[in-house]
Amino acid sequence: MTTRDSRTEAQGYSDQVQDPHRSLHSETGALPGEHPGRSGNPLVKVAGLAWVEFEKPDLDQAERFATDFGFAVADRTPETLLLRGRWASSACLVIRRGPQPRFAGAVFQAAARDDLDRLARGTGGTVMAHWGGHAVRLRDPSGFPVHVVYGVPELPALPGRAPLPLNFGAEPVRANATQRPARHPAEIQRLGHVVLGTTRFRAALDWYLDTLGLIVSDFLYLDGHRDRGPAMAFIRCDLGSVPADHHTLAMLLQPRTEYVHSAYQLTDLDEVAASGEYLRERGYRHAWGLGRHIQGSQIFDYWRDPDRLMFEHYADGDVFDSLAEPGWAPLSRSGLAQWGPRATAEFTGTSDPRVVVAAIKALRDKGNEIDMPALRGLIKAMSS
């Protein structure tokens, strides 16, 4: 005889089989005919995000913030500042001297040297020597520079602290020892992801999937407008059976095309929190945190540099292999975190008066995806 509890358990198992997203990473999966979240025949499949590039007029100021935020200086010339994390890799942040602060593009790591030739043939680009390796320079449909590199020498690993031992439940691992994490600059391990806003979301999304072989982990749509397709995507590298970060790139539809933030991995929660206290004491502008995201699950804390560019410390993010299909959920301000303070206007950008000007300009431009229903949907999402 089947009991009520066993029937409930069986139904729960059945629901999970029919809809793995319910207990995995999103509310639902795709509906019939929705975007599949991957290309059927991409030109290449990049292996990761190598570094991000900026231009700034004051490299001394940039270096002060960078070292306070947790980067180590890999090299410094009068015109270029190379910043790195603790793990063995290339420099993860490149800042060149320029007339005004601006994002200058993302650089992806090719899986093989032949992929650069394939990219060049498929895009009309050229393979050129670059920092001891080779690169192809591209531009996405939003206008952002995108480089793909191979063979750039790695910097050796630097010493870094291990995660703190934590006492859980009945089996403590730390006896006769206190926990006193130091309040000092973070020890950034590596670059995790970059987030970009665009008025041409669908064209840019398909370009990254078709050209670089990235695949979608999660889609967010405007509530009440799912039939319009997604308005945000969290996109990861396709490494086959090897788990990859939940997102290497995230993109969202918005009234202006811009860099939103880049994120850098720390050892654990204490490192995120203690280094945040250090930044606060140094007078830097806090944007949002601490909290834990829903899409990606990472513990986060967001800060702005002296030029108001946003950078994220994070720890404990999700990783998926290529079998995980995209989840779908409505975009909302309250849906950005599992716990933590409400997302601030400083983080969402809604306090910036330039948003209104950008929205008017985007509505007049017929070559993008911003129309009145989309604008209303975005306003609703950021206030819900």
Rank of each mutant, 00 (worst) to 15 (best):
G70E: 09
F71W: 14
F71S: 11
F71V: 11
F71H: 13
F71T: 12
V73T: 11
V73G: 06
V73S: 06
A74W: 10
A74F: 06
R76W: 01
R76V: 02
T77A: 10
T77Q: 10
P78K: 04
P78Q: 09
P78C: 06
P78H: 02
E79A: 14
E79Q: 14
E79H: 07
E79S: 13
T80Q: 12
T80N: 08
T80A: 10
L81Q: 05
L81D: 05
L82D: 00
L82W: 04
L83H: 02
L83I: 04
L83P: 03
L83F: 04
L83T: 00
R84Y: 07
R84N: 07
G85L: 08
G85M: 10
R86W: 00
R86Y: 04
W87S: 13
W87G: 09
W87K: 15
A88I: 02
A88G: 04
A88P: 00
S89A: 12
S89E: 08
S90T: 15
A91G: 07
A91H: 15
A91T: 09
C92Q: 14
C92A: 07
L93N: 04
L93A: 03
L93Q: 03
V94Q: 15
V94A: 10
R96V: 07
R97N: 07
R97Y: 00
G98L: 03
G98D: 13
P99C: 04
P99M: 04
Q100G: 15
P101M: 03
P101A: 05
R102D: 12
R102V: 12
R102W: 03
R102G: 12
R102E: 13
F103M: 08
F103Q: 09
G105V: 05
G105K: 07
A106E: 01
A106N: 09
A106I: 12
V107L: 00
V107N: 09
V107E: 02
V107P: 05
F108P: 11
F108V: 07
F108C: 09
F108L: 12
Q109F: 02
Q109V: 00
A110G: 09
A110C: 12
A110Y: 02
A110T: 10
A111C: 10
A111H: 05
A112P: 13
A112F: 02
A112T: 13
A112M: 12
A112Y: 03
A112N: 11
R113V: 12
R113P: 12
D114F: 10
D114Y: 02
D114W: 05
D115E: 13
D115F: 04
D117G: 13
R118T: 13
L119K: 03
A120P: 07
A120M: 06
A120C: 10
A120T: 05
R121S: 14
R121N: 12
G122Y: 01
G122C: 04
T123G: 00
V127N: 01
V127T: 05
M128C: 09
M128F: 07
A129W: 07
A129H: 14
